[in-house]
Computed example of a mutant assay.
Amino acid sequence: MTWNNVQWKIRMVMFDCYKLLMGGVNKEVSIFCNNCIGAFVAHDFRLPFNSPTVNLMIPPADYIDYISHMAEYTNAEMREVESEKEWPVALLGGKIHIHLIHYPSVAAGSEAWHRREQRINSDRCYYVLVETDGCTYNDLKRFDNLPFKHKVALVHKSYPDIKCAFKINGYEQIGAVTDSYCFHPLLPLRKYDQFNWMKFLKQK
């Protein structure tokens, strides 16, 4: 068993104890994210995937377009597009690029997307933007200006004018928040644990 596996097991026990002390998170929440971090967080709290943005990546500008006009893209067709990536890439509604990183095909990704799309709880939506995959300052400003009460942008440096920004330390020289799911060398903590997810997801 690798040390990462040991960290993961300790982590799950730690989170279970944390939930007992803090009262847990409502299982009806829908977490939206432009990459896999949303799914990692849902898994940490043993939450069902009540959002279609799981096991995939959406370029930040497209992600913001999607969550800004979600009703327009509900039940929209997902079509495969040519790509040099090692994974399938599709267009949702002819506009939103979906990188199906952890799916074998567009058909499989589309089926999972539309299945989870039906679970969205519009009363308990939480939005996360990770500053990666070409995320620009303009993307951060657009996200910050969205009329969503529960949103956070995980960023690599301080942005005083971005109200929803939260800096993840350790990325100052990289220029983006990449692989924030990686474990601490010794502790059962991931880099994104610098943000208080329990407090965020318990907001009403």
Results as ranks from 00 to 15, higher is better:
78 M>Y: 13
66 Y>H: 10
54 V>E: 08
68 S>E: 03
81 V>Y: 05
77 E>P: 07
56 L>A: 07
58 I>T: 09
77 E>Y: 14
65 D>M: 11
66 Y>K: 03
71 A>M: 12
58 I>Y: 02
66 Y>A: 09
57 M>R: 15
76 A>T: 09
76 A>C: 14
81 V>P: 08
63 Y>N: 07
49 F>R: 08
80 E>I: 09
65 D>F: 03
47 L>D: 06
70 M>Q: 14
70 M>N: 14
52 P>I: 01
71 A>K: 14
73 Y>F: 15
59 P>K: 08
77 E>R: 14
65 D>I: 03
75 N>Y: 12
76 A>Y: 14
73 Y>P: 03
72 E>Q: 14
54 V>P: 02
54 V>A: 07
54 V>W: 02
70 M>Y: 15
70 M>V: 14
72 E>W: 13
70 M>P: 11
82 E>W: 09
52 P>S: 07
82 E>T: 08
55 N>W: 11
63 Y>T: 05
82 E>K: 13
82 E>D: 13
64 I>M: 08
47 L>G: 08
50 N>Y: 03
76 A>W: 10
77 E>A: 15
72 E>P: 04
75 N>P: 05
61 A>H: 11
74 T>C: 13
63 Y>K: 05
82 E>H: 13
48 P>T: 07
60 P>V: 05
79 R>E: 15
55 N>G: 10
53 T>R: 08
75 N>I: 04
53 T>G: 01
51 S>H: 00
63 Y>Q: 05
74 T>M: 11
50 N>A: 04
52 P>T: 01
